[in-house]
């Protein structure tokens, strides 16, 4: 970030949130639902971006953190009958804990080995879900009933299956994470993360324990991705092993690359863009994976900075 005036940056982010808030009242039903999903998944992308964009650690296993949140929330509701807030916290805690363990192991490696190790741990996590199908529902998954997805606060109760409640809950989570990311990125910690990405050796020689900083980032990233997973389970009422598969480790990478790595709003833009591209093309082709594949290759070849990254480079140098 260069010479950003904090007021300008915060104004931009608040207006994005306000715009999303207003959209709830104008979007047709179908798109309202799609947007709720996109906002929940953009949180996943933001968590991924924190690690990939700002620290420069390319993980191929983030599906495990997303699904740790998904199952942490989903299974506590399904088997233990926990309420929505407790289940959400359980999901985030599962993700953070898993990220701590994985971080301690995987951060002993770097570069290509880091990518492969994270992919393998995620594969183990995925297979464990299949292996314990008796509890997780295996690849069939589990449906969480509407009755368990109601938040009762005082006298009022909010039904997460109601489209507006769902939209607003997704927006609330998205806004919190967006502002938290922005604050982190502009903080001293954020500056250290970027320094590690640029030159880890040099950062050490400025007195930073780079391993501890990277571990903190992995845990924060894992917790955010888990928050996305937990919200997804509670808002959409379904948990399934496909969310733990390799494909869900690749998708956040794709969204972030598309929107612009190391930009705060890039993850939202990438997720939104990709969702609508698939939605529009699904009219005449079912070849969803083909689009993903072609998009990945075109992005790394011709557009490595992504949409917002390129805009920042050309015009808006102050974008965080």
């Amino acid at each position: 970030m260069r010479n950003a005036s904090p007021a300008k940056t915060y104004a931009l982010h608040i207006s994005v949130i306000a715009l999303l808030f207003a959209l709830n009242f104008v979007l047709p039903d179908y798109h309202q639902g799609l947007f709720a999903r996109i906002m929940a998944l953009a949180v996943f992308a933001m968590g991924y971006n924190l690690l990939f964009g700002y620290v420069g650690l390319l993980s191929l296993g983030h599906a495990m953190f997303f699904s740790a949140g998904l199952y942490g929330a989903g299974l506590t509701v399904y088997h233990l009958g926990w309420g929505v807030p407790e289940a959400f916290v359980a999901g985030v805690a599962c993700g953070a804990l898993l990220a701590l363990v994985i971080g301690l192991l995987a951060l002993r490696t770097s570069g290509v080995a880091f990518m492969i190790v994270t992919m393998m741990f995620a594969q183990v996590f995925y297979l464990l879900i299949l292996y314990f199908a008796a509890w997780t529902g295996g690849d069939q998954g589990l449906v969480i009933q509407q009755a368990s997805r109601v938040i009762a606060i005082g006298g009022a109760s909010f039904d997460l299956t109601d489209p507006t409640v769902r939209y607003m809950s997704a927006l609330a989570l998205f806004s919190i994470i967006l502002l938290v990311t922005l604050a982190v990125v502009c903080s001293r910690f954020g500056r250290v993360l970027v320094a590690i990405r640029e030159n880890e050796e040099r950062t050490k020689m400025l007195g930073y324990d780079t391993v501890a900083n990277k571990l903190t980032a992995v845990v924060a990233s894992g917790a955010i991705c888990a928050a996305s997973g937990a919200a997804y389970a509670l808002l959409f009422g379904y948990v399934g092993s496909s969310f733990a598969s390799v494909q869900y480790s690749i998708l956040p990478l794709l969204w972030v690359l598309l929107g612009g790595a190391a930009t705060t709003l890039g993850p939202l833009i990438g997720t939104l863009f990709m969702y609508y591209v698939t939605d529009i093309t699904s009219g005449f082709t079912s070849a969803y994976l083909l689009i993903v594949g072609v998009a990945l290759i075109l992005l790394v070849l011709f557009f490595p900075k992504g949409i917002l990254g390129s805009i920042r480079e050309r015009w808006l140098r102050w974008l965080p």
């Binding site: 290759i297 790394v300 490595p304």
Partner: peptide
């Protein structure tokens, strides 16, 4: 970059 690209090839 090549890992990301070969993932793309995989899907295609």
């Amino acid at each position: 970059g090549t890992i990301v690209a070969t993932i793309g090839m995989l899907y295609i």
